[in-house]
Design a protein around this nucleic acid. Structure first.
Length: 937
RNA sequence: GCUUCGGUGGCGGAAUUGGUAGACGCGCUGGAUUCAAAAUCCAGUUCUUUCAAGAGUGUGGGUUCGAUUCCCACCCGAAGUACCA
């Protein structure tokens, strides 16, 4: 009987699916364990061998935890709203839902083939209306909340309205709107509804505002920075301009500090935490107020270097700064306007990449130094970013290189405030090793002293205060797309109104075209006059918008991260139609215990979802603040691309080791045509693409060798390996083991199909342990000590490794174990049963098959094998740390059941001890079983 | 530039965290089996040299009885981020 993986895998996959083996119950006496993968976007290309890496790891861990007696929740779903399906729809006219459903079916087929233990009864799709109903519901919650900085929580907007009516906003942060910065309770009560609503938008956590976006008129949509190349759209190559647009945003910036400090409480990879830290970008500094000559408003400036305040010789504003147009003098107006126009044409990316050239114009206006009352010219320049701080800087050329360059370029005076420091070539930017001079009352102080005294003085004259600033910007929440969640919003008098939650979900309407409308409205504008009828309380189509009872709907949709920011909570109770999840289920599962996914989501999904959960927590909707206790970033599996050398401009191709004195270029060829010795099958290549039909291939010894390079696995690089093919040739168990064996889970590593024979023959050897004489046979005798030792060593190693997610070394340990049992000719049922349990999370199909033959049980569990939970390890079999006279320590392989003299001689035989024991007498050996050996010489 | 991670045979990678470097697998070499091949099994495989022996974990220093591991400086690679005031 040989190992027939095809038969075995089919059989058990069918069995698991028919018996719902992995269905998790929300109520049991067992301790819970929630293991989750980042759910995939179901793309049309299907899975390649790189995708399931993380799923295999989480599956092994889930199966292990089930064996250990946990009630494991291990679900899977699809992040099914997204751009590719929509692009495809634009090209072909097919409905994105159709293509998405097809892709999901294909994904499911591929996933099932790998034998994953997902609880498919809990599958979710973000594009299902039963799911996005709750995304919309949460959006309404965000809209109806504000952030109280004093208590650091989100609160109901009605509380804020109450505060406004009693005390105005005097005790709160000033309103960001220019028009209503501060107001009293009397002011508030005198405002009309529309004014009140406008003010409230400045406090809501989901809000409408005018922001700068990259707008592509031809595509009719906003583009993200990475969708723009050289100022043109990546898709189509159309012009992109920066434009102010009214968009929905989420006030994630309110949570900056909590998102930062919260990192201390979660067991996430250090590099990923570091990325989030940098992204949040906290900096400690001061806010300083500068008066403007002949203008009744002030410029606020954020600086981390108030100690250098006497070095300020000019001010610089971002071109977008709201005061620029107001303070510019008549004679400078034209120059300033031209400059603003010019920088408005540049995309954000261009501005960022163009770091070297210095540009700017003088406005003609002057600011007043808050402490020295000196007159400071106000310039504008695009090295100052409107989106960071206040969009204005106090320029200290002696202490900041950018200010220095700017001052040199425009001949602005540079004042040196650093005693005995040379600033003739560049600015002095260090924060230590200097003493201030030319700085009035700060003279003689260092950085720290200067900083605190400057802030103190500024506070006294009411011109400055200590301030912490964050880079994190509010997240834009509107997309001019079709395939996303519709907003539950209609507009009345140009102000947004939330639709009552009892009418959710607002379903995505059918449209005839997926492109924006002729007049530049998002695709939902194609659904003829999509509107909300406030009498019938429903969406109406083809109706006349009368602005009395029927109002226009929001035409934008939500971005991809809306649905993915809270999906973990939905898995707990996925079919609940009354709540996003019941209180009982939330209290039972609480949070994800282990979350596995790629680090590319560090500053996107993984930050947004933390924010979202904090928000839900503030509202008391979820019981825990951090939704994922432990996070593991699996590394990418890279492709091993094959290239052939072509002489430029000809049809001549050369085998890799032939070096002609001609200019050559490398062309990707499909890795399917290359064997393990890097030889190319020229016949197959000729039939592949027309340009190779008549090409000349110069070979060496009749062999054409390709060159190889490791790069990302992708269809366009022809280096994709399909897991289905591997399952066909070697089986899912072999593939699972091999992917784990390739290297550490977190590391990026290249795929090499050749190596898979190693894990394949391991499984065959394992199989043959039970089939020594051709048929299934195990012995019931007492196990030998040698085989027990092999088993126990393996159990300890594997359990350690699994708990550290070190699956590559686990696989090695299994290989060693099977080799050793093989050479011991061990066919003992006790040993082999234990090994089968241990191996079952890794290679579930073959282990189920064996187990079924061993014990007539249908599934493997610890209950069927109680010895397994007992402490197996015989102390004598392992290594002990050794110390000499209490000083040196290392570990030594020793059997403490030996007599003292035998221990002594075995110590003398250890090479590491040789040096120290030569010429010395061992006086005493202190043995604490399992802990330490102390040798006194 | 800054931040983080990494650098070990022909290759992927081990090394119980300071204790016999190269586990395990691939590949390669030789052998057994076979008419032959595949499959399987056995032996060998860091480098130099015939052996003996020596060198060796990116480079150069340091700490230590002992360093792949800890410290300092540098070189190289990957990822993230970038006019952040």
């Amino acid at each position: 009987m040989s190992y027939n993986f095809k038969h075995i895998e089919k059989k058990w996959q069918k069995y698991w699916s028919e018996n719902q083996t992995f269905k998790a119950e929300n109520k049991t006496d067992l301790p819970k364990y929630f293991i989750m993968d980042m759910f995939p976007y179901p793309s049309g290309a299907g899975l390649h061998v790189g995708h399931p890496l993380g799923y295999i790891a989480s599956d092994i861990f889930s199966r292990y935890k089930r064996l250990k007696g946990f009630n494991v929740l291990h679900p899977q779903g699809y992040d099914s709203f997204g751009l590719p399906a929509e692009q495809y729809a634009i090209q072909t006219g097919r409905h994105p839902k159709k293509t998405t459903d097809e892709n999901i079916a294909r994904y499911r087929e591929q996933l099932d083939r790998l034998g994953f233990s997902f609880d498919w009864s809990r599958e979710i799709r973000t594009s299902d209306k039963s799911y996005y109903k709750w995304t919309q519901w949460m959006f309404i919650k965000l809209y109806n909340s504000w952030y109280d900085n004093k208590t650091e929580t989100a609160k109901d907007i009605n509380e804020l309205i109450l505060i406004f009516s009693k005390e105005g906003n005097t005790n709160l942060d000033a309103c960001q709107s220019e028009e209503f910065k501060t107001f009293s309770s009397d002011d508030w009560n005198s405002f009309d509804e529309s004014k009140k609503n406008k003010i409230l938008l400045n406090y809501r956590l989901a809000f409408l505002s005018e922001i700068d976006v990259n707008w592509c008129p031809k595509l009719g949509t906003v583009l993200a920075n990475d969708e723009i190349i050289d100022g043109l759209s990546e898709r189509g190559g159309f012009e992109v301009i920066r434009k102010k647009m009214t968009q929905w945003s989420i006030r994630i910036s309110a949570y900056s500090q909590r998102l930062l400090t919260g990192l201390n409480d979660i067991n996430w990879p250090e590099p990923l935490k570091e990325m989030q830290k940098n992204w949040i970008g906290r900096s400690d500094g001061a806010m300083v107020t500068f008066d403007i000559k002949n203008f009744d408003k002030q410029i606020e400036v954020f600086t981390t270097r108030v100690d250098t305040i006497f070095g300020v010789t000019f001010m610089t504003l971002a071109p977008e700064h709201p005061y620029v147009k107001k303070i510019t003098t008549k004679e400078n107006l034209k120059k300033v306007q031209d400059y603003i126009k010019l920088s408005g044409k540049k995309t954000e990316r261009e501005r960022m990449s163009d770091v070297k050239s210095i540009s700017g114009v003088f406005t003609g206006a002057y600011a007043i130094h808050p402490l020295s009352n000196e007159r400071l010219p106000i310039w504008i320049s695009d090295y100052v970013l409107a989106g960071y701080g206040t969009g204005a800087v106090m320029a200290v050329p002696c202490g900041d290189q950018r200010d220095y360059n700017f001052a040199k370029f425009f001949n602005i005076p540079i004042k040196n405030i650093f005693l005995d420091k040379d600033i003739s070539e560049e600015a002095f930017q260090n924060k230590d090793g200097f003493v201030l001079t030319n700085s009035s009352f700060l003279d003689g102080l260092n950085f720290k002293e200067g900083l605190s005294l400057a802030i103190k003085k500024l506070k006294e004259v009411n011109k400055g205060t200590h301030k912490i600033n964050y880079k994190l910007r509010d997240a834009v929440f509107s997309r001019q797309r079709y395939w996303g969640e519709p907003f539950p919003v209609y507009y009345k008098d140009n102000l947004p109104v939330m639709i009552d939650e009892k009418y959710l979900p607002i379903e995505l309407p059918d449209v005839s075209k997926y492109l924006p409308t002729e007049d530049g409205k998002p695709p939902l504008g194609n659904s003829d006059s999509w509107a909300w009828d406030t009498i019938q309380n429903k969406i109406v189509d083809n109706f006349h918008i009368d602005n009395k009872t029927v109002f226009r709907m929001e035409l934008n949709t939500m971005p991809g991260w809306a649905g993915s920011s809270w999906y973990f909570n939905r898995y707990m109770d996925p079919n609940n139609s009354n709540e996003f999840a019941s209180e009982e289920s939330l209290n039972y599962w609480k949070e994800v215990d282990v979350y596995i996914g790629g680090s590319e989501h560090a500053t996107g999904h993984l930050l947004y979802s933390r924010f979202w959960q904090y928000f839900l927590y503030d509202l008391g909707l979820v019981p825990v603040k951090d939704y994922a206790k432990k996070l593991i970033n699996q590394g990418m599996i890279l492709g091993n691309s094959a290239f052939i050398k072509r002489e430029v401009g000809t049809d001549n191709y050369y085998s890799d080791e032939i070096n002609k004195d001609v200019k050559t270029q490398l062309i990707h060829v499909d890795v399917q045509f290359v064997n393990t010795s890097n030889e190319l099958d020229i016949v197959k290549l000729r039939n592949w693409q027309p340009q190779f039909k008549k090409a000349n291939f110069e070979t060496n010894n009749n062999k054409f060798i390709v060159c190889r390079e490791v790069e990302k696995m992708s269809k366009s690089k022809y280096n994709v390996i399909n897991p289905d093919d591997i399952c066909e040739d070697y089986g899912a168990d072999t593939l699972r083991l091999y992917e784990m064996f390739l290297g550490p889970l977190e590391q990026a590593k290249p795929w090499n199909t050749a190596g898979i024979t190693g894990t394949y023959s391991f499984l065959k050897k394992y199989w043959n342990l039970f089939h020594r004489s051709g048929s299934f046979k195990v012995s019931q005798d007492k196990p030998s000590n040698e085989s027990l030792k092999v088993l126990h060593k393996t159990i300890r190693k594997i359990e350690d490794d699994i708990n550290n997610f070190s699956f590559n070394t686990s696989v090695s340990a299994f290989m060693i174990c099977v080799n050793e049992l093989n050479s011991l000719k061990c066919d003992n049922i006790h040993i082999l049963k234990s090994l089968t349990i241990l191996l079952s999370p890794f290679a579930p199909h073959i282990c189920e098959e064996i187990w079924n033959k061993l014990g007539n049980k249908k599934t493997i569990s610890y209950e069927s094998f109680p010895e397994f939970n007992a402490e197996f390890i015989k102390e004598s079999a392992f290594e002990y740390p050794v110390s000499f006279n209490g000083k040196m320590k290392f570990k030594i392989n020793l059997d403490v059941s030996l007599k003292v003299d035998e221990i002594k001689s075995s110590l003398r035989n250890d090479l590491r001890l040789e040096k120290f024991l030569v010429g010395r007498e061992i006086k005493k050996i202190i043995v604490v079983p399992g802990k330490i050996i102390n040798i006194v010489c």
